[in-house]
Design a protein around this nucleic acid. Sequence first.
DNA 1: TAGATTGTTAATCGATTAACAATC
DNA 2: TAGATTGTTAATCGATTAACAATC
Lengths: 205, 205
Amino acid sequence: MNAEKIPDIIIGRLPIYLRALQRMADKGMKTTSSQELGEHVGISAAQIRKDISQFGEFGKQGTGYSISYLLDKLREILKVDRIWDVALVGAGDMGHALARYQGFVNRGFCIVLIFDNDKAKVGEKIGNFVIEDTSTMIERIKEAGIKIAMLTVPASAAQEVADKLVQAGVKAILNYAPISLNVPGSVKVQHIDPATHLQRMTYYL
Amino acid sequence: MNAEKIPDIIIGRLPIYLRALQRMADKGMKTTSSQELGEHVGISAAQIRKDISQFGEFGKQGTGYSISYLLDKLREILKVDRIWDVALVGAGDMGHALARYQGFVNRGFCIVLIFDNDKAKVGEKIGNFVIEDTSTMIERIKEAGIKIAMLTVPASAAQEVADKLVQAGVKAILNYAPISLNVPGSVKVQHIDPATHLQRMTYYL
DNA sequence: TAGATTGTTAATCGATTAACAATC
DNA sequence: TAGATTGTTAATCGATTAACAATC
């Protein structure tokens, strides 16, 4: 184990390894090599070995990595060896799609609170959860001790909601609004913006 | 203008500048500086100047950048000074959310074809578009000359559909399935996977 | 054992930053 | 003009790759 600060860029690759390894495990595979994993995710074998070795010696010369062991270790490192409660703010189309998404639970997350500021939506159910009013959001998130939120409100409301989330003690925001959020350095933001992602590719067309 | 190959990492930042500039324009601002833009997007002023200067001299010493001029130039560079027709494959919750998303058109994209392999969904309408059967997809995409697709099918079907998209001549895929796609080097893939994005943040919690 | 593959080192490559002359 | 800010250079910093001893 290396006690020094691990670069962000390495942390960013671990979930990709995790996803590929999970898929290998689902297929019944027991071991893999840096070579094989690299082919799956499009990253060089040397880099994968280097990334993984930042955290310990998880492989065996000659045979590679035990998939289930490496999965355990990566989950532990990324702290997804548990289920994180998540708040969802914004019950529009995207919010609904996320609320119904089946893929969260077996990857460490569970949406437990849903908010919207539209009185017409408040009280409505999505799955087992009732949409609550944004006015009670700070209090509700605090009392639930929630640290992670997904933001699917319009751009015009996003910064204001983000400020409230920060106030409520949220430390990680998955932002679907097409706007750069201003938050304290202690709060992590990841941005999902389909148009931006598409624009990264048109240059090459 | 620099004729050399522009690094991928720079191309990836341009859509972020574009989004921030668009927002400034919407607010009625006329000019900005690398300093100001940098504060909005969380990138150093020096880097922004360096990135932009790869493509020409778009600023003025002393006054900075004309927002509308820089917007035009960035759109031109990224080839979003036009509207790209896009195919959407997979009419589940996420597909529906994307089909109804209002944010594409003014950023260069328009969904014009929607496919699903579920016979029960085929024929159904989303907005003005009818969901078509995947069996006719290759042909329909070819005849429409579509180069961009969004993939919102389950992981189990994603690779197969991706292969068909490649066959149909698609050169850019926005992949929502939680699986690394295997495509030829001439085809660009961008991955949107909310669980992966969340896992990038839990490490820091 | 022989073959395979790790973990790690050193070398290379590329990206970011600091600084400043040019100039609006 | 004086102040501001660009575009660019050189220096620094960091990430990736190649290579190989260690070892399963």
